[in-house]
Amino acid sequence: MKAEDVPQEGNTTLGGQRKAMYARGADGRIGIVASQGWEAEEIVTRQAVEELERLAADARRRALAGETSPLEYHMYRARMDITLLSQVTGLWAWRVRRHLRPAVFARLSPALRARYAAALGIETQRLDRLDP
């Protein structure tokens, strides 16, 4: 790739940052050129973010309908899945899965609630709320 072909497409995913890319400059040497982003990369990054947003929105809808616990919504909002939430809390995956049931979640001990809140980086009271 030549330096003048380094994409400068202003990706929203980069939040105004520029990334360093190696490309062949006018002097014939390969060196760093700052890039404002490339649409193809923006597409795949947004794809991953949108998938997590879709899972969170779906979990929120089901939590409002009483079909799942708010924990599932907070899990996807923190860009996690059951495997990761289980690793971060140190709980077995089957326990995390069980805590996604509204009735079980409602009886959760304060200690477990604190553990989830810490893992998700939110305040404990927030666990019950479903504000987007």
Partner: peptide, 22 residues
């Protein structure tokens, strides 16, 4: 999602599609 993942692993903050080749 699978092919998007293949592209993402070329690393957006990283190496611009060339996946370290450049």
């Amino acid at each position: 999602l699978f092919v998007g993942h293949l592209v993402r692993m070329q690393e957006e903050i990283g190496t611009g599609g060339g996946g370290f080749r450049y």
